[in-house]
Amino acid sequence: MTEVRFTHIGGPTVLIEFAGWRLLTDPTFDPPGRAYAFGWGTSSRKLTGPALPPEDIGPVDAVLLTHDHHSDNLDDAGRALLTDIATVVTTRTGARRLGGTTVRGLKAGQSSRLEAPGRPSIDITATPCRHGPPLSRPITGEVVGFALTWPGQHHGPLWITGDTVLYRALRKTAAALRPGTVLLHLGGVQFPLTGPARYTMTAADALDLCETIHPRTVCPVHYEGWQHFREGRETLAAELETVPSERGKAFTWLPCGTAHPITV
């Protein structure tokens, strides 16, 4: 078994520490107040800043970047941080945009390995995402999640879902993966311009997915701090109150800015 320390910095940004490794997901460190364009006439304002500034994060071995083209997953300060990172794992199109020899691009189903002396190797497999309604991928762009496996895991892989709606390929992947711990991107993202269309999972989707895979621990992320999030912590908490405790007890709220240990 491995004890992993998760520090939620805000939005999708989490520092993951174990066995000498320090990994960072989707770095977002800009201050609040600015509006960002998301393409095709959509935009959103950042409402809250990070719980920790980038200078307080310390050294990072690798960044796991689900996608580079939306500022709620990679903002200006996060992009600047990438220049000091030895390894960035992201989408194939993101790797082309970011450039450089330190960036590894993966499509869903492809894997890459992190290795370092005296540490367990980590296999990173990209998992599928659809960041919007059917046929939206040419507009919303390429996104992936990440499944992490390493020797000594007791409860199954660690899965970072990435920004996605709940759809058939995601269900199939989750059922095959059977993750023990999930960093679950939520928020029920919507934009006024596109009406009822959603771009990330809702609280109901979270419960539906977890009913299929029965993970040991589910940590919601990517649900607060921006105008385009439609479902925050209160909504998910209200949904959990309506389901049996056995289904709801897996959900763990990571405190912002403070490391939280979880056995993986």
Rank of each mutant, 00 (worst) to 15 (best):
Thr252Val: 15
Arg45Gln: 14
Ala175Val: 15
Ser121Ile: 00
Gly41Leu: 09
Ala77Ile: 03
Gln110Arg: 01
Gly41Ser: 11
Thr28Ser: 09
Pro50Tyr: 10
Phe229Lys: 01
Ala62Pro: 10
Gly10His: 10
Cys210Gln: 12
Thr90Asn: 06
Val221Asp: 05
Asp75Val: 03
Leu177Met: 13
Gly109Tyr: 02
Thr212Asn: 00
Gly248Gln: 06
His222Met: 07
Ala95Glu: 04
Gly99Ile: 12
Leu254Asn: 05
Ile85Met: 08
Ala147Asp: 06
Gly152Asp: 12
Gly156Lys: 06
Pro151Glu: 15
Lys46Cys: 13
Gly49Leu: 11
Arg34Glu: 15
Gly248Trp: 02
Gly141Gln: 08
Glu17Val: 13
Val144Phe: 01
Gly162Asp: 05
Pro157Leu: 09
Ala259Tyr: 02
Glu55Met: 04
Ala147Arg: 02
Glu115Trp: 03
Thr173Phe: 00
Arg104Ser: 01
Val143Ala: 11
Phe251Lys: 08
Glu211Gly: 15
Gly100Tyr: 05
Val143Thr: 15
Tyr199Lys: 02
Leu65Asp: 01
Ala86Tyr: 00
Thr252Pro: 00
Pro255Leu: 11
Leu240Gln: 09
Pro192Met: 14
Arg22Pro: 03
Lys172Arg: 12
Tyr199Glu: 05
Arg247Glu: 11
Thr149Gly: 06
Ala19Gln: 12
Leu184Asp: 02
Pro134Asp: 14
Gly162Cys: 06
Thr194Leu: 15
Leu177Pro: 05
Thr28Cys: 15
Ile85Pro: 06
Ile57Trp: 11
Gly100Ile: 05
Ser136Tyr: 07
Ile16Cys: 14
Pro59Asn: 11
Thr42Leu: 12
Gly156Asp: 09
Pro215Tyr: 10
Thr42His: 07
Leu170Ser: 01
Thr25Gln: 12
Val221Met: 04
Leu52Trp: 03
Ala175Ile: 15
Thr7Ile: 08
Ala35Pro: 00
Leu240Asn: 11
Gly195Lys: 05
Met201Asp: 03
His70Tyr: 13
Gly58Cys: 10
His155Arg: 10
Pro53His: 03
Gly49Met: 12
Gly99Asn: 11
Asp76Val: 14
Arg104Lys: 09
Asp72Gly: 04
His155Leu: 08
Ile160Tyr: 04
Asn73Thr: 15
Val14Cys: 09
Arg45Ser: 09
Val89Ser: 03
Arg198His: 00
Gly188Ile: 09
Leu64Ser: 06
Gly109Phe: 03
Lys249Tyr: 00
Thr149Trp: 00
Ala259Met: 05
Ser136Trp: 04
Ile213Asn: 02
Arg79Asp: 07
Pro255Gly: 14
Ser121Met: 07
Asp72Ala: 12
Pro53Asp: 14
His185Glu: 12
Pro157Cys: 10
Leu158His: 06
Leu207Asn: 09
Val14Asp: 08
His222Ala: 13
Gly39Lys: 04
Ile57Glu: 03
Asp72Phe: 14
Leu23Asn: 04
Val218Thr: 14
Ser44Ile: 12
Thr13Tyr: 04
Ala147Phe: 02
Ala204Ser: 13
Arg45Leu: 09
Glu211Pro: 00
Gly39His: 05
Ile85Phe: 07
Tyr36His: 13
Ile57His: 07
Ser43Cys: 08
Gly94Ile: 04
Glu55Cys: 07
His214Lys: 14
Leu52Gly: 11
Thr93Asp: 13
Gly195Trp: 04
Val218Ser: 06
Thr13Pro: 08
Pro50Glu: 13
Tyr167Phe: 14
Ser43Gly: 14
Ser44Leu: 06
Ala95Asn: 03
Gln227Arg: 10
Arg178Pro: 02
Asp26Phe: 00
Asp76Gly: 04
Gly187Phe: 09
Leu240Pro: 05
Gly188Asp: 08
